[in-house]
């Protein structure tokens, strides 16, 4: 989900936190924060806190070697040079092993304070992905306007304009189909369509996405994982 936004990432491993990643794209506009709790894994053991510097394109090549039904075990020693990946099928009569070279990655870490939030929107992840993809064909910017009654996605481009308006509703049978708006104050923010299209690559990870918006501040897009999260912080566009 994130390899088109960032190439090199430090994966921080610890017994209490599981695996955490913070990475910023080269343009310094999009920040990715990933947390995979230890409980996400069938087995998780980390005797000593470790930082695994990974090239995501390389990691992706290794992970594609396995089949979906196979068990994956990732292993690194103390002060490792390599990450080991072992795929086993359920009957354990096919085992494939790979070793991925680790890298020293010099990344600066940003401190994200708890933000005041003007509004929080939760909507189906596929719905947000469709809007982001469709609107990018019209304009390089997407404006999100939230009032208590609706959230409006608006694009103005060379060929014309377009907007999608969603109204809050609750689907009792399929809660993940609901659209929720929690509003402290109305907000109108503009974002780069390119970055929104990077963010929606996480769509398959979660049925819903939660968007937190605050006037003249970065937006938070959160995809909840079964035990953890993938968060994107995106700086908005506005006049200085």
């Amino acid at each position: 989900s994130i390899k088109d936004s960032v190439k090199l990432c430090n994966f921080n491993c610890s017994q209490s936190q599981g695996i955490t990643v913070q990475a910023i794209d080269d343009s310094r506009v999009l920040l990715i924060a990933l947390k995979i709790d230890a409980g996400s894994f069938q087995e998780f053991r980390c005797d000593k806190d470790l930082v695994l510097g990974l090239d995501l394109e390389s990691l992706s090549k290794i992970l594609k070697q396995g089949n979906n039904e196979e068990y994956l075990t990732l292993m690194a020693e103390d002060s490792p040079d390599n990450l080991m990946a072992v795929f086993e099928d359920k009957k354990k009569d096919r085992i494939s092993e790979f070793s991925l070279k680790l890298m020293d990655i010099d990344s600066d870490v940003l401190t994200i304070d708890d933000m005041e939030t003007d509004c929080t929107i939760t909507l189906p992840a596929y719905e947000f992905a469709k809007i982001a993809k469709d609107m990018k064909t019209l304009s390089e910017s997407l404006k999100i306007v939230v009032t208590k009654d609706s959230v409006k996605f608006n694009a103005e481009g060379q060929i014309g304009t377009g907007s999608v308006i969603l109204k809050p509703h609750t689907d009792m049978d399929k809660p993940e189909e609901s659209v929720k708006i929690e509003l402290n104050s109305p907000v109108a923010l503009t974002f780069g369509a390119k970055y929104l299209n990077d963010i929606v690559k996480a769509t398959s990870l979660s049925s819903t996405v939660t968007i937190k918006l605050t006037d003249k501040s970065p937006a938070l897009f959160e995809y909840k994982l079964p035990s953890g999260y993938l968060r994107y912080y995106l700086a908005p566009k506005f006049d200085d």
Partner: peptide
Amino acid sequence: TQKQQTLARFFGSQ
């Protein structure tokens, strides 16, 4: 046209 902001403007470096 509005100017793309960067995150450094909002978040501190550690």
